[in-house]
Design a protein around this nucleic acid. Structure first.
Lengths: 343, 343
DNA sequence: AATTCTTACTAAATCGTTTTAGTTTTTTCT
DNA sequence: AGAAAAAACTAAAACGATTTAGTAAGAATT
């Protein structure tokens, strides 16, 4: 590998200043009155010597890295890996690379990661947060660090955010189950207690049930820590089963819960939907060919990514963002498959 | 946001040189004979002013970024997202962040991405390549850019690589199917034709079949482009079905193919394993609770990640790596579930 | 008492850009 | 012809660290 060619080499070999070369390089030649011929000469030399700008030097000087960060609870969760893929594509098309961090629903880890990424002068952050307050993000807003929250948000926060209408999603799920004639319904969610998506889904669900005079008994409203999901679900299902008080239907609040539920019902040889119906939140391609296939509330993953990236980019570039755009709520869809159909 | 504190501020406020501060900062104080008291004073001041080194400046000076790149064909593929998660954790524990790029099995895109990541002076790369020759990697070796190939490799290449024993995996799959009494077997893989994993799996599979005098007719050895996977599988299955010449078993060479196959068999109401058995390569948690659950050859994802990261780190740090370690081949497991069991 | 050796430190160069604040030369205007 | 304006360029500073090549002062050696 030959020595790296620098801007200085170009300048010297042409007998001009490096200021000039830099100007041409950044398409500011015209603005600064560099003659067209000189510009042409410089450009030719750049090609000839195969000059590649030193991105680090530039980043150092400009305080810009053309890199954004994506923080999610777990990149191997199918929902987030699809978000990641969409964002990565968008970023690539705009000359950005993306750094990915999994927070494990751990507030401290998330804090540390954000600190690290700030130190590294990433240009912006897209975050599905595990925080319990908006404090940190208020700080980020004050510090002027471009960022947008996806998936989970807080009431009245100042950071830009794009989420889906989880409340409506919960309602859709409830109305469908009611319509199918289910009344005895359990709900499986995850802790910590402050995750907005989970709560909105629950609230929407309960509100629609309440309208028909149906309620979920407290011991059927189950939240489990992320790490113990499988164990909890197994225990609870076993409990229900052995006590002979199986719910008629279960609403699982994310794709992992849905999977874990399916797996354990399977192990107990409980038939779906004959003995218990399953309605999930989040779609995953597999859910369409399991037997039975699984009814879900599906989120518009591409759209979330697009809106979030667009907002982030506009912040980075410093363009105006209207109040209306600062908090976007996207609609969800219900996909009715076999797991909820009463025979 | 208060002004950023630089090394110079520390130096001035203590009346020492920034050389001294830098030395203390990097634990080189003793080596350069800085007195313990001075070191203590400096450290105290650093705390007091809450100094955070400018990572960009340091990276620029040192040519090091503490960032590694991970290139895979598609981060939303479950196999790769789990690899990504493992590597991310390992990287985080060693003070590295990871940039992720999806290549879409596109040689040109991969080339561009590698170029970009080199420009950005990433410290190292972990790559599941889509290249058809080892040319590029030989160049990387010559250029001294630390990198490790995972998953896919080339014969006699000079880059470090860690893969699984795909050939053995193919054999295991074949022997199991034979043992169950299947003889008329189809294979679904992906193009391009040079992907080493796919070819090794096929060769292993065919070799074990051949030992029992069984062969796969050419029109049952199907390779489809990544992007058209679903369409191809649908067409082929329909074709088989309508022609009344269904294979007794199908070997699908990655998890996406397995899923697509399941989905389309489902649509055609073909029963598994009664009408056709399915054996997949790559395990995914869903495969354990689909009905039927799916037999697979499973790869040791964590182990692949660990070995690859370890090799990368040692390259970056410049430690010796023995010839033996330069090409690691890990064993695979067969997980027998319902989809291949003859009733 | 002059020389060498230690100890404890520092000045300045360096990395490769971008940008500020000019300078020099030529043209235009009155 | 002399002043003002425009055109075409440049020197040097700045970004914030690390590192090379020292220096100054005192202790030890001869």
């Amino acid at each position: 590998m030959g020595k790296k060619v620098s801007i200085d080499d170009i300048a010297k070999s042409l007998g001009v200043s490096k200021t000039l070369v830099s100007l041409v390089l950044n398409d500011k030649g015209d603005k600064h009155g560099i003659s067209p011929e000189t510009q042409k000469r410089v450009k030719a030399k750049i090609k000839e010597l195969n000059y590649q700008p030193n991105v680090l030097a530039r980043g150092f000087r400009m305080g810009k890295t053309n890199t954004i960060g994506l923080l999610v609870s777990d990149i191997s969760n199918r929902f987030y890996s699809r978000i990641a893929r969409s964002i990565e594509d968008l970023a690539w098309n705009h000359g950005y690379t993306v750094v990915i961090c999994s927070t494990d629903e751990d507030i401290n880890k998330e804090n540390e990661q954000i600190r690290l990424l700030r130190d590294r002068k990433l240009d912006g952050l897209i975050i599905s947060t595990s925080q319990d307050t908006s404090e940190l993000f208020d700080k980020l807003v004050e510090a002027g660090l471009p960022h947008v929250l996806i998936d989970r948000t807080f009431e009245g926060m100042r950071s830009l955010n794009v989420s889906v209408d989880n409340f409506a999603g919960g309602r859709m799920a409830a109305r469908h189950l009611l319509h199918q004639g289910y009344r005895k319904i359990a709900v499986f969610g995850i802790t910590p207690d402050h995750i907005s998506t989970i709560n909105d889904r629950i609230n929407g669900f309960l509100s629609a049930l309440a309208e028909e005079g149906v309620s979920v008994p407290p011991h059927w409203l189950i939240k489990t820590p992320f790490a113990e999901m499988d164990k909890t679900i197994k225990e609870k299902l076993q409990q229900f089963y052995q006590a002979g008080s199986m719910p008629e239907a279960i609403f699982t609040l994310n794709n992992n819960l849905t999977s874990a539920c399916m797996l354990n019902l399977r192990k107990l040889s409980i038939e779906i939907p004959r003995q218990v119906a399953i309605m999930g939140f989040d779609d995953v391609s597999f859910f369409s060919f399991t037997r039975p296939s699984i009814s879900v509330i599906a989120q518009p993953i591409e759209r979330i990514s697009e809106v979030a990236f667009d907002l982030l980019l506009r912040q980075i570039e410093g363009s105006k963002i209207s109040e209306k755009e600062k908090s976007v709520k996207l609609p969800v869809d219900i996909i009715i498959r076999e797991s909820t159909i009463k025979s």
